[in-house]
Amino acid sequence: MTTQDLSNLASNQNNEFFMRYGVNTVQQLLSLSDMAISLTEAATTLNISRDDAEALVERAYKISNIINTRDKLRFIKADPLERIVLTPLQPQEQRDYRLLPHLNTNGSILRAKSNDDWQWFMKTCYQKISVSKAYISFPKSKVEDFKRFIGIATQLLPAKNWLINTDDKLIDTSIDKDEYQGMRYQQNLSVSTFRIGIASREVRDLSSNCVSTKNTWKYSPLFRFFIHMMLIMDDSLTIGEDEP
């Protein structure tokens, strides 16, 4: 993408809701809302227009209510007081955040270059992302969707930043190695689907043998956080459609 393309991209973003405010600002708005601070006060504190603040909170509310096929909340933890929490779950390990600027920048470029791919990717993520861990699962019957997902994912982050977890026999009979070359891969005989998410190095407790040296990667919660924030910040994305 040329310098002029990037300039045009920035100009277009200034004229639309997407990325009008930074991730940190939107996070603070949602946090203040969770603290029962009035929307007007929160908007004034963060220098956000009242209308924009209302739109962001409304979208966050819809996302917080998304459930999976087992009636479990997909993006937030159930609140013991049954309150609707708006603030996204955040990665606990600071090192996960180093990839967030790259995701934001590359996501903006992808959205500008190929909005169809951006829309499909985001819809797939919010309909499929695991409740327990931040990965997307594709059955063998959806291998073409899995291949498309890989192609888009590697536009957001380099291949080395993605982790695939599945059974060797399943992947060997379904997809060429060239199509996931460079990605982290872990065999799991108990998995009958293709699982993919952002890779994060497993932290090992050297005082115990709890973590195998053969499996040094896990799924980063940054993936869920990024998807959650983009769903809030991009008002072109439709929220609330049924599961596929």
Rank of each mutant, 00 (worst) to 15 (best):
T2Q: 04
T3N: 12
T3F: 12
A10V: 14
S11M: 10
S11K: 15
N12T: 11
Q13M: 12
N15H: 10
E16Y: 00
R20V: 00
Y21F: 14
N24L: 13
V26E: 05
Q27G: 02
L29Q: 11
S33C: 14
I37E: 09
L39Y: 04
E41T: 12
T44W: 00
A55G: 00
L56Y: 15
R59W: 07
I63Y: 04
R70E: 14
F75H: 02
K77L: 10
A78L: 11
P80H: 10
L81V: 02
L81M: 12
R83A: 07
T87D: 00
Q90W: 00
P91K: 09
T105S: 11
T105V: 12
G107M: 05
S108D: 03
K113R: 12
S114F: 04
N115S: 07
Y126V: 05
Q127W: 11
S132E: 14
K140T: 09
S141N: 12
R148V: 01
F149K: 04
I152F: 05
L157I: 04
T166E: 09
I171C: 04
D178S: 15
E179C: 06
S190Y: 08
V191N: 10
R195I: 00
I196F: 06
G197F: 09
I198D: 08
D205L: 09
L206Q: 11
N215D: 11
W217C: 05
L222G: 07
L222I: 13
F225W: 09
H228A: 02
M230E: 15
I232K: 08
T238P: 00
T238E: 14
E243Q: 12
